[in-house]
């Protein structure tokens, strides 16, 4: 049966917790189709009451950035500290923002 599992496509699992606003990535699993993937996600990732909602996405639908592009994509942002909104003085009347 190991071969059957190999042939089963990979799915990404996203969970929304009881008090969470957004679905968060929880892991991935193999399943023959979407229905079984949803069931497996329930059995694998929600055993301790972690979720009130599950999203399943076929892993092949995910478009990922290339790790080799990391320097080009992300390093330039590291030297632009002025993009953080920490250089403005907030008037006292505003209070906590």
């Amino acid at each position: 049966m190991a071969d059957a599992t190999q042939a089963d496509p990979l799915w990404e699992v996203f969970l929304r917790s009881r008090n969470g606003l957004a679905h968060k990535h929880a892991g991935s699993l193999h399943a023959p189709d979407a229905t079984m993937a949803l069931a497996a996600a329930r059995d694998l990732f929600t055993r301790r009451g972690e979720a009130i909602s599950i999203w399943i996405v076929p892993s092949r639908a995910i478009i990922a950035s290339d790790p080799d592009d990391q320097a080009m994509l992300f390093e330039p942002a590291e030297s632009k500290i002025y993009r953080h909104p920490s250089f403005y003085s907030v008037p006292d009347d505003v209070g906590h923002m």
Binding site: M1, T5, A39
Partner: peptide
């Protein structure tokens, strides 16, 4: 079980 996923499912 036939797969790890099903192993957990059956245990549940």
């Amino acid at each position: 079980a036939p797969s790890m996923e099903e192993d957990m499912a059956l245990a549940n």
